[in-house]
Design a protein around this nucleic acid. Sequence first.
DNA 1: TAAGCGTGGAT
DNA 2: TATCCAAGCTT
Length: 299
Amino acid sequence: MPRPAIPPAAWRPALLEWYAHEARDLPWRRPEFSDRYGAWGTLVSEFMLQQTPVTRVIPHLEAWLARWPTPAAQASATPAEVVHQWANLGYPRRALWLHRAAIEVVERHDGVVPRDVEALLALSGIGDYTARAVAVFSYGDRHPVVDTNTRRVIARAVDGRSQPAPPARADLARMSALLPDDDTDAAAFNAAAMELGAVVCTARSPRCEVCPIAASCAWLAAGRPDTGDERRRQARYEGSDRQARGGVLRALRHAPDHRMPADAVLADWPDRMQRDRAIDSLIADGLLEASDGMLLLPR
DNA sequence: TAAGCGTGGAT
DNA sequence: TATCCAAGCTT
């Protein structure tokens, strides 16, 4: 593996400068957002953004926070309410985990979203990315925030590879070594790396012609070679258990009172065993309840 | 550690 | 039309 020809210090200022002028105007970046919702707003937005695109999150975020503006408010909701409000954002277990995290914040932290990364990591549904995103973007602390965009930017700009390796613990240390010393600059650099990966250094059709760090990019300098792709591929969705689960939950979300006779749920699903398996697994996950031959969202 | 977990827009 | 991809987490 060749050493990077150009040290990161060369492209760090260019990236920060670009971000200062070109960053998208996203709701969670507006001052009034943090004024209103503080770290809770950041936490909710990050839960929604876990594997769901920005453009799909935006319309749901405001309604969610208007309904549950604090962890205490969230904690007093029922699982059925949060699963219904989650609507079609996907991966509905996240709604349950967010609800559980709110309860944990009330019980362990007096209703205040913690600032400490270890305390954040101990909350339901929060991993390396989300914990540091809250500590950095809401509290302004200096930590490496590494998401799929950041990994791709480092893979290309520093390593000269076309796609990043699968996520690894070492990613945190690598990003840490790139961070500016100043807390505010470090936070901006974290956000800027994500932003660059999201809008310029994209997975499929990178726009190198408008990239602010093109002059320092190892991958571009090498002529954008195809260096292979070790990323895990998603399993087929069509005909999967996931699709069945999605169908079951969609039916319950749309049903009056969020309840239906069990027999009527996905009655036309071609594979009866798969339908039953989907229902059982949803119950095991706490996303569904069975009672008297009826299925309902959990209370 | 690798697999499971939704949904819909882009290519 | 089929595949890719998205501010990941849990077990």
